[in-house]
Design a protein around this nucleic acid. Sequence first.
DNA 1: CGCGGATGATTGTCATAGCAATCATTGTTA
DNA 2: TAACAATGATTGCTATGACAATCATCCGCG
Lengths: 182, 182
Amino acid sequence: MSMNDGTDAGLFDDPRLTAMGLLAETFTALTAKMMPTLGASRLAATDFEVLLRLARSDCQRLRMTDLATQTALSTSGITRVVDRLADRGLVSRESCASDRRGSFAVLTGAGRELITDLVRSHVRDIDRWFTGLLTSDQLNALLSALRLVRDEVHPGATAGSGECAAARSALVQSLATVENEQ
Amino acid sequence: MSMNDGTDAGLFDDPRLTAMGLLAETFTALTAKMMPTLGASRLAATDFEVLLRLARSDCQRLRMTDLATQTALSTSGITRVVDRLADRGLVSRESCASDRRGSFAVLTGAGRELITDLVRSHVRDIDRWFTGLLTSDQLNALLSALRLVRDEVHPGATAGSGECAAARSALVQSLATVENEQ
DNA sequence: CGCGGATGATTGTCATAGCAATCATTGTTA
DNA sequence: TAACAATGATTGCTATGACAATCATCCGCG
């Protein structure tokens, strides 16, 4: 290896560079292994992620902006993912009582059903191609290292959690203080 | 947390699922941190990856198919990346002497210069957001776990390496029979 | 109050990448 | 050697997602 001619022979073999490459290769190949299961339901990876995050959230709902923060998508990307999912009846939009600019994406019953089935298969895939290949010590070491990095590069990982209580109280208040405008 | 109503309360908290989520979150947020450096040269992540793989290869060249195998791109995707890079003078195409269907993407001098500069900055980014956050023990544990997974999900990680000797002998013996094994 | 800036969401436009079809070449088999 | 299957690469078509502009609403300050 490393038969590069030139003066900067070691530059492209820098261990930090290969570490990043290994992370990238592993993740992209791993997600590729997950595609058949998702594709069977004609869902893209982002659609799956949005459904999953909704399923995990209180009241099965998240604000568009929070979805954008939690995922790697822009707000316009979220708008379109939710458009597609809403067309298929898997989520619905609900306007926010306390801030009429905002809307929630809410998992429907059909969406809940689909994501539940899908997650079961998905967990099997994860086990087959990822977690099942490692001893629990290896896995724990991997995860704690990843957590250190994640906490630094993605502080907003749980944006919007706990909105349900706020939404409920906002609803109650908006009913109490009767519409005083138009 | 986990105030999910329903019968499958634990399903979305399965540790394997959160492990996969952590890997995905970490990688996508990490690559997002790398974008400013790449964007400064108006390169997308895939363009960067292709340039880097060429720079690492013997004779600064790879077959289109090998590029496709090494990256997560389809062959048509590779065609288009190389189109763009060739338009900017960073790579050129060379037809293969031993198989006239094939072509090589070859790094030009300008491409070599750009990727060299870029990798220096990129390594600083990696250090800042990834490897520098971990002790060397943590990093080694992370990498060896990733390697186990990578070797399982992406066996073709080094497809096309060692083509240079074959290409050279093909050039020399272009009138003789040249074998081109896997 | 009412103006001005900030924020949540959507839309127009564009670049990117996958799939399927196509073309050229190679290898295989009868 | 002639047919035919397989391979390398490219192109047409389409879907996806980012950026910038836009619209509506909210909040702060005089």
